[in-house]
């Protein structure tokens, strides 16, 4: 995802001379190419996220379109007040790209996990919140974000994401894409964890359980219509996120569905705990029960329990 980000931004900067790249001491594969091509439009602010965000607001105020890039945890938490007072309060067109969504910076530990970013950022007025599901969805998300000219936070992974789209899909803010149609249960996911949901759904299909998968890449504003229609059809829903269920996708979906009917609703994600365990990405999602098998078991449990009247 990081590699694709670099390529996409380079192309965007070639086309649009208002775009300014602001980094925070990140390991770009080829930052020199940016310096050579756009010497006046890329600035590394070092390990100083607050200042980077404040300066980005100043650039936006003067008519530029800054893209601020950094570790999601540090943009969302450390520099939160700079995002709030400078960019959101003044409704300035800055695009923040925070990498390491969920556990993608796996073996660094909980300090580097973006597992509360959705919760804190969705509270900010004027800020849009997007999370591409896989590498191919990043370019359309980035382009749509710049076109908005209002504050946007894009939550991206890091590397080795499972690709779920053959080509670049269309991305429209406040529009969720139904990845897989089904009638027995709705699986709502955000980010690359959708890959685990797809594997689980394929396994379930063999047993005659048809899951509908919705890619919630536009977390704010959220596509209420698609979510409500799907859940009213399946009557069962499961949210899956590399994030706290408190304030994250589960809460966003709860807000959409309140007063819309009676559904069987389960949530998978961190339940008010930090992911303190280390390991590879796969190890972490195993530890925190977000892998294909756990999703499969959860769905089976929900459907069987529902049929036996346990819920």
């Amino acid at each position: 995802m990081k590699k694709k980000f670099e390529q996409t931004v380079f192309n965007i900067m070639e086309e649009n001379d208002k775009v300014v790249l602001i980094t925070t001491d990140n390991d770009f594969l080829n930052y020199q190419a940016f310096l050579d091509e756009f010497p006046k439009r890329c600035y590394d602010f070092g390990i100083a996220e607050c200042n980077a965000l404040g300066a980005a607001a100043g650039l936006a105020k003067e008519g530029f379109s800054p893209i601020v890039y950094g570790v999601g945890a540090f943009i969302a938490y450390r520099a939160f007040e700079f995002l709030r007072c400078n960019t959101c309060m003044q409704n300035l067109g800055v695009v923040f790209v925070g990498f390491g969504a969920g556990f993608k910076i796996n073996n660094f530990g909980a300090t580097h996990h973006s597992t509360e970013d959705i919760s804190v950022l969705r509270a900010l007025p004027n800020l849009s919140l997007f999370a591409p599901a896989s590498v191919n969805e990043l370019p359309p998300v980035l382009k749509a974000s710049l076109a908005l000219k209002t504050p946007v936070y894009i939550r991206i992974g890091k590397c080795f994401e499972t690709e779920i789209y053959d080509d670049e899909p269309e991305f429209i803010p406040q529009k969720s894409k139904i990845y897989l149609e089904g009638s027995d249960i709705t699986l709502l996911t955000t980010g690359n964890i959708i890959a685990e949901a797809i594997k689980a759904a394929n396994k379930l299909k063999k047993e005659g359980i048809n899951a509908e998968i919705i890619n919630v890449s536009s977390l704010k504003p959220v596509d209420k219509k698609t979510i409500i229609e799907s859940v009213q059809k399946t009557k069962r829903l499961l949210t899956i996120e590399e994030h706290q269920i408190q304030g994250g996708l589960a809460s966003i979906v709860s807000d959409c569905l309140a007063g819309k009917g009676c559904f069987l609703f389960e949530k998978m994600g961190l339940n008010n705990e930090f992911a303190n365990e280390f390991g590879w990405y796969k190890d972490i999602i195993d530890t925190y029960k977000l892998n294909e098998e756990c999703i499969y078991n959860k769905v089976k449990q929900m459907i069987l329990g529902d049929k036996n009247g346990k819920f």
Partner: peptide, 17 residues
């Protein structure tokens, strides 16, 4: 502690322009 950072962005804009 916000104004000086904002000013950095404004001054950079003036340089780019």
């Amino acid at each position: 502690g916000h104004g000086l950072s904002f000013g950095v962005g404004v001054a950079l804009s003036q340089r780019i322009k």
